[in-house]
Write a protein that binds this DNA or RNA. Structure first.
Lengths: 242, 242
DNA sequence: AAAACTCTGTACGCTATCGCACATAAGGTA
DNA sequence: TACCTTATGTGCGATAGCGTACAGAGTTTT
């Protein structure tokens, strides 16, 4: 029965030693996340945290007038709901499903309980949170200094890294909301990428044809964040000597 | 002797119960931080963490070409060096002293040791880190959607909240580096604020004359972050019931 | 099959900010 | 005092992205 489930598809769960995983196993519940579903809203309590498998979740900051910007993206490498173990209970950022798929969910207080055991899970979650900090910082600087073209490449690559295949179900309108720009701006930038043969899309389906081409165009922000995720989460159980 | 020092001027230290503070007292060392001093550089190990008293430290993300953006600011409400207890050891962001002043410093491994005791200090540090996450997120969205005028107001208010008086020692050039914009842009925005009678400045000295006026002009980002800091750090030792 | 809706493409003037070039002013130094 | 350095003011043209409007193409509903 255990084999039919796939905990190891989520990096955090996959890195847990069996003993700790057993604490959580009975309480992990596989759920389907649908495009656009909201997992967390500004200031609202979250009953569950989510460990994405093939789903992707965007952390968004939404302004009073509805303008929004994605500040980080969460896929199979992480979890949605860090405020549940950081002690704040709620957070100002919203979490919206950007790519439909499966996730495990766990009652928030159970994650908190496991966190407070101060075992591997705590170490993992803290390092993951630091990776998230890095991603947010780099996103902020990228917003400020880089062109929409480059930001779109970064966004596509971040999504691609969290998807099983090379196709995204995503309209230009939604990408625009994520990047905090106009839909027409995305149309134009995406048009350039399509003309260059890097992607092909129609009506909400984007297929990446040339990943290397995207990497050639993307700004340094992508690699910086990716390296930091690898560093922090690849062998996180090992304590680094001072 | 203890009275001559002023731990309570730093919110995190001030909120510690006496018993926990005693662990750290012998190791806290008061230091002067000078304008422009670097406390942390991308990917470099930090030997100490810093608890600012009246100093202000900016967390910056610096690009390869030298462009930079401030992603958060740290004053007497927090500490510089969250990566030291989050487990990552290093971080991609730099920490630069934005306003000279005093701080306590503590050897990183001693903070980590105290963190691992899982007492009040851990709770405080985690909640502080969440507040930092919030500030970074809001900064990112503000960068994207708000005018330089508003961002300058936000920046001035954030600085003011962390200063004992109402005067900043800070050239427009440095503010421009923090906000990730041109120096000329700051000149223009600051000129508007001066004409409106909200601030007065000359050659690196900015005096805030009308704080309320700044609050009237600032975007929602300022209040959002401030409220979240208050919520997370005002009575952080109290566990919220589920 | 027709209608309604959604997604994408395109155009055009507008604005904030950029990049650059210089001018002015204020302090520090010789 | 004269000089030099640093900080600030200003004036361009260039440009990226915005807001708006609308057209076409694909999809769903009726």
């Amino acid at each position: 029965m255990l084999q039919t489930r796939h905990f190891q598809q989520n990096a955090l769960l996959g890195l847990l030693p069996e003993k700790e995983l057993e604490h959580l196993l009975p309480h992990l519940e596989e759920v389907s996340l649908t495009l656009g579903q909201s997992l967390s809203e500004s200031g609202r309590h979250m009953s569950h945290v989510y460990f994405p498998l093939d789903a992707i979740v965007s952390l968004l900051c939404v302004m009073e007038n509805g303008d929004s910007t994605e500040i980080a993206v969460v896929g199979h490498e992480g979890l949605v709901g860090v405020s549940q173990f950081m002690g704040g209970e709620t957070t100002l950022t919203s979490a919206i499903v950007q790519s439909a798929g499966q996730a495990y969910r766990l009652k928030s207080h159970l994650l908190k309980r496991e966190f407070d055991r101060a075992g591997t899970m705590q170490r993992l979650l803290l390092r993951y949170t630091q990776a998230l900090l890095t991603q947010m910082a780099q996103t902020a600087v990228c917003n400020r200094h880089h062109s929409l073209d480059q930001q779109l490449c970064r966004w596509l690559l971040l999504s691609l890294d969290r998807l099983p295949g090379n196709e995204l179900i995503m309209t230009q309108e939604l990408i625009a909301n994520m990047l905090g720009v106009r839909r027409e701006g995305v149309t134009e930038s995406a048009g350039k990428l399509q003309k260059a043969g890097l992607i092909s899309y129609n009506r909400g389906h984007i297929t990446v044809l040339d990943r290397q081409g995207l990497e050639d165009r993307v700004c340094e922000c992508y690699a910086g964040v990716k390296n930091e995720y690898d560093r922090l989460l690849k062998y996180p159980a090992v304590t680094v000597a001072c």
